[in-house]
Amino acid sequence: MKLRSMAAAALLACSGGAFAQSNVTLYGVADINVEYANHVGAVPTAANQFNRGPANDVYRMNSGGVSGSRWGLRGSEDLGGGLQALFVLESGFNVDSGTSQQSGRLFGRQAYVGVQKPGIGMVSLGRQYTSMFEALANFSPTAYATQYEPVVLQSGPNFREDNTVKYTGKFGPVTALAHWSFGTGLALPATVGIATPIGGNGEVPGQFRRDTAYGAAVAYQGGPFGVTAGYDQWNPTIGTSNGTAKKAVVGASYSIGPAKIMGGYRWGQNKNAADVVIQRDDFYWIGANYQVTSAIGLTLEYNYDDVKSLFGNTNVANPWQIAFVANYAFSKRTDVYLTTAYAKNAGLMMESLATVYANSLSLGNSYALGNGQSNMFGAAVGIRHKF
C-alpha cells in the first residue's frame, strides 16, 4: 500500500510538471458596424447570367470593419532543450448573423500545428496565411482592415491556403518565411472571362501540380525603418488542367514620432491552362498612420492598379481607391471607429473582374458595381471588442 501511494504521488507530481510547461489561450475579436454604400450591383455569376444588374444604395449591418470577427485557441508546450510544440485554431464568424465565414469552415482563418526552436525557426502544418501576405501585414496602412482593404488585388484570393507546410524564422530584426501548399482548397465560381470555376481542393492522384501553391518572403524591421520583399504562386484548376497566378512584391515603411508612412509595389501575371496571359497588372499603394493621442488614431491609404491586360482587353480603365479610418479607443480592448472609402473604375475594395469578385463572395456582401456605374462610395460606423 505504501509503495502504491508513493507511485501515485510521483505520477501526480510528474503530471503537474508537464501541465506547468504547457498553456492554452482563448482569444478573439467581435467587430460589427452599420454601413452605407452606393452604386451597388450583384456579383455576376451563372445564376444571374453574369449580369451585375441595376445600381442601388444599400444600408446594412456588417461583421468586421477594421478586424475580421474571430475566436481562437492557441497553445504551446515546452518539449525541453528549447524545443516547443504549438498550435493555433482560429474561427471566423459573422457577428450580425452568428454564421461561420470562410465557406463555413469551423477553423477557416487558421488551423495548424508545429514545432519551433529559437535560432532555428518554426515549421507548421495546416491551413495558414501565405508567406507574402504575412510579410506585408506591417506594410499595409489599414492593416488588412476587413471593410475596404483591397487585399485580394494585393495578395491574391489565395492568401489563406489549406494543406500548407510553412517555415518561419526570426533572426533579430529579420523575419524569413517560405511555404508550400499541396492543395489550397480555394474554389471560385465561373466569371465573365473564364467559363469554368477556378481552383479546387487539389491533391488529385496523377496531377501533383493541380491547385498547389508556394511562396517566400523576407522582412526587415530595424528601428524606424522597415522593408520587405516576397513572391507568391498559385496553380489553380481551370477545366481539367491548371493555370498560374504569380505575384512579386516589395514594400517599405518609416516611422516619424507618432506617424508611420508605408507603401509598396506588387507585380502580377495570371495565365490560363493554355499558358496564355489573361491578366497582367502593376499594383501600388501608399499611406500613413497617425496617433493623434493615446486614444485617437487616424489612417489614410491610396491604392492604384495599372492594368496592362485583362482577358485580352488592353484598354481597361485603371481602378483606384482612397480610404480613411478614424479610431477612438475607450480601452485596450474596446474601440469605436469610422471607416470610409471611395473607389473609381471598380467597386469598394477595388472589386471587379480583376479580383474575380472574390472579396464579395467571401464577405457575403456585394461590392460589385451596378451596370452603367464607374465609382462607389461607402462609409461605416462600428464598434470592436477584443477578448
Rank of each mutant, 00 (worst) to 15 (best):
M1S: 12
A8L: 11
A8G: 07
L11I: 12
L12M: 13
G17K: 14
F19A: 09
F19G: 09
A20N: 10
Q21G: 12
V29R: 05
V34R: 09
Y36P: 01
N38A: 10
V40M: 07
V43D: 01
V43K: 01
A46C: 12
A47W: 11
A47Q: 12
F50V: 02
G53N: 06
D57S: 13
D57P: 06
V58F: 09
Y59S: 08
Y59E: 09
S63H: 08
G65H: 03
S67A: 13
G82K: 14
F87W: 09
G92N: 06
G92H: 07
D96N: 13
S97R: 10
G98F: 15
S100L: 14
Q102N: 09
Q102H: 11
Q102C: 07
F107G: 03
F107T: 06
G108T: 09
R109H: 08
Y112P: 02
V113M: 15
V123R: 01
Y129L: 00
A135Q: 00
L136W: 01
A137P: 05
A137K: 10
F139Y: 02
P141D: 00
T142A: 03
A143W: 01
A143N: 05
T146F: 04
V151A: 06
V151N: 00
G156N: 02
G156D: 00
N158T: 15
F159K: 02
R160I: 06
E161V: 15
Y167R: 10
F171V: 09
A178Y: 04
H179I: 03
H179V: 01
F182V: 00
F182E: 01
T184I: 02
L186A: 06
A187V: 12
I194K: 02
I194E: 03
T196Q: 11
P197Y: 04
G199R: 00
V204H: 08
F208Y: 13
R209W: 15
D211W: 05
A213M: 14
Y214F: 15
Y214M: 11
A217N: 04
A219W: 00
A219F: 04
G222R: 05
G223R: 04
P224M: 03
T228R: 02
D232H: 06
W234P: 03
T237W: 00
I238F: 03
G243D: 03
K246W: 01
A248E: 02
Y254A: 01
S255T: 10
I256F: 14
I256S: 07
G257A: 13
G257R: 03
P258H: 05
A259D: 10
M262I: 04
G263V: 02
R266H: 03
R266K: 08
W267D: 01
G268R: 01
N270E: 09
A273Y: 01
A274H: 09
D275P: 07
D282S: 11
D282A: 13
S294H: 14
E301H: 10
N303A: 08
D305M: 12
D305G: 05
V307T: 04
K308T: 10
K308N: 07
V316A: 05
P319I: 13
V325L: 15
A326M: 15
A326E: 12
F330Y: 14
K332F: 15
K344D: 09
A346F: 07
G347T: 08
M349H: 11
M349T: 11
L353A: 10
S362L: 14
N365F: 06
N365Y: 11
G370H: 13
N375D: 11
F377E: 07
V381P: 06
F387T: 10
